[in-house]
Amino acid sequence: MGWRWFHQWGSPRLFYERAGRWQLVCGWLALILLVAGSLWGLGFAPVDYQQGNSYRIIYLHVPVAFLAQAMYAAMAVCAVVLFVWKMKLADVAMQAIAVMGFAFTALALISGAVWGKPTWGTYWVWDARLTSMLILAFLYLGVIGLRAAIQDPDQAGKACGILVLVGVVNLPIIKYSVEWWNTLHQPASLKLTEKPAMPASMWVPLLVNILGYYIAAAYLVLGSMRAIVLERERRATWVKELVGRA
């Protein structure tokens, strides 16, 4: 009984209808939060006394870097759902998240590199966090490439699921080994367990933007999932009825 909502979400048709509404809500909410958070961070947060204005990249870099990692974990959750409950929709989510996750990882890498230029004097250093982010990008690329190489969608989904699960087990090991290998970077600027070292006037807009980017990611993933659902279910009656009505 308590699980009914879960199984309903597994129905492509119900998902398609609900996700349309959710996508709209997420899209507008993300837009408001991101415009507010970014303007706040860019114009109203105080200047960092060490890094000057270049630190304002943080309002994009940190949320995007969080997302890059969180989306891999989300993909792993989808893989578990796919294998345990054989829910096709989890595979759709995996496919959508892989692309969006790669985009966010690339954005985190590029914004980190650009931030590095004024801070370290060079675009790229082999520092722990940049390196593990680069490896994360390769992991995402592997998932995308594997799906593209296998024609049968069911088979591709399961192969990607195996890869993602193996990847998520290895990810912490990779992260710690890379950290051990090199610890040059400034310590993480926002940890959930500690009180951040930044003043509130700096981290409140950061929090707004983190929330904004998470919701934006949900918006993008839902949008992508709807398109994939429609594509995969193109022979289903409900899709034909839906398109015929329009």
Binding site: L42, G52, N53, S54, I57, L60, S111, W115, P118
Partner: peptide, 12 residues
């Protein structure tokens, strides 16, 4: 955004 506008704006 002196002197870092060249870095901040392209990122956004």
């Amino acid at each position: 955004m002196a002197p870092h506008g060249v870095y901040v704006w392209p990122v956004y």
